[in-house]
Amino acid sequence: MCYADRMPRWLAHVVVVAVFAALVAAAFARIEYAWNWAGVWEYRQKFVQGWLATVGISFAALVVSMLVGGVAALCLSSRLPLVEAVGRVYVEFIRGTPLLVQLLIGFYVVASAVGLDNRYVVGTLVLSLFSGAYMAEIFRGGLAAIPQAQRDSARAIGLTPWQTLRLVILPQALRLVLPPVAGQLVSLIKDSSLLSVIAISEFTLNAQEVNAFTYSTLESYLPLAAGYLLLTLPLSALARWLESRVRFEA
């Protein structure tokens, strides 16, 4: 057995990141890029504000999209044709069209029509509905994956339908959907960058503005990438940790 088989997991990660960083550094060295961090440093406040806006919007959309996704998943699983159809049309319509179009129509048409003019609220809602459609399919799959035998067992011991959902179905379904939900949340955070098209002053729009002021493209966008990783990496790690804690199958 060689050392590579036994090396600690964290060390393996460090090694891979280091090699990757070296490659990137070599690429930059080759194109002899003239760094100008000083110009961008002037605008650090803008990065911080944009990042905080992205955190806030993502967190709000995360909560709302899970609620929307949960309700839509129950619709999709319904035995009533009309209820099922509502869920199905919502999911297919949202998943089949670009978020960009949904944002523009949502803001310039729907929101204007109902007199909702706070672009942050509109943007967060559209993002939630968008992500909720994906959550709905994930949740529906999780519910459907619980075998009928579990429902039979629950009924046999006299549980009510609500107790069955709460004590038997959901605890098992949540374990199943945790990894895909975490992946969807990571997507949601990155998708929030599209809110820049309706002039929401979030992380990406602010980085674009810094770029316009300083003409330092890489210096503006590398911090952008780092800022998103700062959110998504802990989320993935948290999901993996939760997953290992709640695993029950051998």
Binding site: A149, S153, A154, A156, I157, G158, P171, Q172, E249
Partner: peptide
């Protein structure tokens, strides 16, 4: 019927227990 089921017990061929 649920009240009735609470007064009896049923054991199936397999997968009776809650795995979590």
């Amino acid at each position: 019927l649920r009240d009735y089921r609470r007064t009896v017990g049923t054991v199936f061929q397999a997968y009776n227990l809650f795995p979590h």
